[in-house]
Simulated scan of single mutants.
Amino acid sequence: MTDGLRTWHGSCHCGAVRFAADIDFTRGTIRCNCSLCTKQRNWAAIVPAAAFRLLQGNGALTEYRCNTRTERHLFCGACGIRPFGTGTSPRWGDYVAVSVHCLDDLPADARAALPVTYLNGRDDDWNHPPADVRNI
C-alpha cells in the first residue's frame, strides 16, 4: 500500500487546512530530537516543494520560526494542529515536511509500518542518529 510514489491527502483537525502531497514512503520518514520536534512529537515525510499542494486554508495558517529561522513551522490558527512545515536544507533542497499523523487516507497499520530515520537535531549532528530514540 505504501510502496512507491502516491498522492496522499491530509488536513488539520478542524479541516480548515487541506493538502495533497506526492510521497514515496519507501524513502522513509523522519523523527527528530530537537526541542521543538520533541515537544510536538513531530513525525514527518519529507517531500520536494513541487510535490506538495495546499488545497485549502492558506489564510488559516499561522507561522512559527525558531533557532535559525530558516524553517517555517505552520499550524492551523483555529485548531492548533501542525499539518506541515517548509524549509530549505543541503540534504533535501526546498522541501515540505508533511506530518504523517495528518494524512487522512493513510491507514493506521500502514502508518505503523513506515520506516523511520532518527535525526539528532538537539546536538546539531544531522549525520548520526541520537543514542536514545524512545521518546521521539
Rank of each mutant, 00 (worst) to 15 (best):
A45C: 07
D3H: 14
I23T: 14
D104T: 15
T29C: 11
A110P: 11
D105G: 04
R82S: 12
D24E: 03
T62Y: 09
R27S: 11
N120I: 11
N67T: 12
P48S: 08
R122F: 13
A112E: 07
P48C: 02
T38C: 14
A110L: 15
D3W: 09
R31P: 01
S35C: 01
Y64W: 10
F25E: 00
R69E: 15
T86A: 02
G87M: 04
C14K: 09
V133W: 06
C66G: 15
G85M: 08
N42L: 15
G57C: 07
V116L: 11
G80V: 07
R41A: 13
V96D: 02
V100L: 02
V116N: 09
Y64I: 01
G4Q: 07
N127V: 06
A78T: 14
S11V: 02
C102K: 05
F84D: 00
Q56R: 14
H9Q: 13
T7P: 00
T117M: 10
Y95F: 15
T2M: 12
D124S: 14
A113W: 05
A60N: 09
D104A: 15
N58T: 08
A49T: 06
G59V: 03
A20G: 04
M1L: 14
W43T: 09
W92N: 01
F52C: 02
G77L: 00
A50Y: 08
S11T: 11
R111G: 06
R82A: 10
P107L: 02
N120W: 05
A16H: 14
F25R: 04
V47M: 04
A21E: 05
G10K: 05
N67Y: 15
C12L: 00
V116K: 09
V98F: 00
F25A: 05
V100P: 01
Y95H: 10
T70A: 11
G93S: 03
L36Y: 09
A113I: 01
T2S: 13
D109N: 14
I136C: 05
N58S: 10
Q40D: 12
W43Q: 10
T117V: 15
S11Y: 02
A44G: 12
P115I: 12
C32R: 08
N67M: 14
A21M: 06
S11L: 02
V116A: 10
Y118V: 03
R53V: 06
D22Q: 10
N67P: 09
L55H: 04
A60T: 08
Q56C: 02
R69D: 15
R65T: 10
L106M: 05
L119V: 15
R82P: 08
Q40F: 12
L103C: 01
D125V: 09
F75K: 09
H73M: 00
L106D: 00
M1A: 13
R6N: 10
Y64S: 04
R6T: 13
R6F: 07
A51P: 05
G121Q: 01
F25Q: 02
R122Y: 13
A131S: 14
C37G: 03
H13N: 11
L114H: 09
T2R: 12
C34R: 03
A51V: 04
R18N: 12
A131L: 11
C66Y: 14
